[in-house]
Nucleic acid binder design. Sequence first.
DNA 1: CATGCCGGGTG
DNA 2: CACCCGGCATG
Length: 339
Amino acid sequence: MSTVRCVLILCSGHLILAITMYHLCLQACEQKKRGLNKTLNWTNLSLGPTIFRSPESVEMDEIMAAMVLTSLSCSPVVQSPPQTDQCGGGELSDSGSSGYWSWDHGNVSPAPSPSVTEADSSPDEGLPMEMEQSDELNAKRPKSSFRGVYKCLWPNCGKVLTSSVGIKRHIRVLHLGGSEQSHREEDFYYTKISCEAVDTSATQSPPRSNSSSGPGHSKPSTLSQSAPSSFWQIHSEHLYQVCSSFIIFLRWMPFLSQTSHFLQIMPLDKPRCRSVSVGEQWLQQNRLQPVSASPSRTHCSFRKGRSEAKKCRKVYGVERKDQWCTACRWKKACQRFPD
DNA sequence: CATGCCGGGTG
DNA sequence: CACCCGGCATG
Ligand SMILES: [Zn+2]
């Protein structure tokens, strides 16, 4: 009974996320298309009224809990669309029709499109605890005395290991295709689970980030729900699962701080448990400054402000237009004096 | 206002 | 494609 309910909630949670992501992508594309703003402005993306802004926070609470549970148990079967064609690459990389004046597209999303058929179940060296789909609600409790475990977020792989190096290796070898010294790509495919039981929030053992994972917010007591982007932390894994390439795509986006805004918009209930994708921690520490809590109207779009470099127009003047580079003559981006 | 250039034309 | 230009963003 409860299991069934939980599963349902899980599904709905993922569905909601999927829809949300889709929604956001669409809007992003729309913005770009409409030329409302030459750069994507995540702050303006509105989540459908049905989703996160909904007043039924009780539902959200349940979903949150369910999501957290997911991270502790098996990962649900979410066939993330192989290419997420709607959003991401297609629109942002300028459809490549002209190719000449476009952005230099290319490795916008090096996401290793997760093969759905991938089956794990290979005996990994790590800790033997292998969560099974069957009765996770009860099964997972006993082992929870660990300070932190690392869970693989790859679809259909719920591998749980105790060491970060172990999980990284697991991901690199099994999912990322062995070699590929991808720059810390593995970080995005596992999460650190630093609390054990949902309902023991009161007597929580110190999360105590051990070893490599960024100490970030290692608050010993009840959850740092003050964290600027806790939503992101809570959901990162699921975002990945829903639209895996999207996170990668976010990583490469030049306007990452916008992303943080957009993530902050979403209201959140106090999380009972943190499961932070280590990759996100890393991302936050490296890319996102604390983001003073006022996104306000400071509309700091990342449109390339006019560069100092003088272009043909300024150099030669309008009267000697024939000396301009062709691009300048066509009112395109200058080639002779590129940025 | 001047400048840079994106997006969308036209031949 | 080459070529042009409206219109927007920015300084
Ligand atoms: Zn030029």
